[in-house]
């Protein structure tokens, strides 16, 4: 997972399809924003099919993370600045 992996995210879902990851986020979180592929979150550009959901819960963001050989993961990471940017862009 490169740099994201070094930040030790909580893995909520692994080895799934992008579609399933997207549904998981929509189904399980109340505050959900939608961004386009290539949206920069932390130090990565999100990969996915438009629209890509990013949820906010407390001080964490929940988002899909795609790896070429291992499918989609749904990750949860603390990110105050990211939350601020998402809420501001609404």
């Amino acid at each position: 997972m490169g740099c994201i992996e070094l930040m030790k995210p909580e893995i909520l879902l692994s080895d799934t399809s992008f579609k399933e990851g997207r549904e998981f986020i929509r189904r399980n979180f109340r505050e959900v924003y939608e961004v386009e592929p290539g949206y920069k979150l932390f130090d990565v550009y999100l990969i996915g099919v438009s629209p890509i959901p990013i949820a906010i819960e407390d001080e964490s963001v929940i988002f899909p993370y795609v790896k070429p050989c291992r499918g989609t993961f749904v990750l949860k990471m603390e990110g105050k600045e990211e939350i601020e940017l998402l809420r501001r862009s609404k």
Partner: peptide, 15 residues
């Protein structure tokens, strides 16, 4: 050849 490929294709399409 897999689901991740669809996500990469869609991303390139977008950017």
């Amino acid at each position: 050849h897999n689901d991740a490929g669809i996500a990469y294709l869609a991303t390139v399409h977008g950017i």
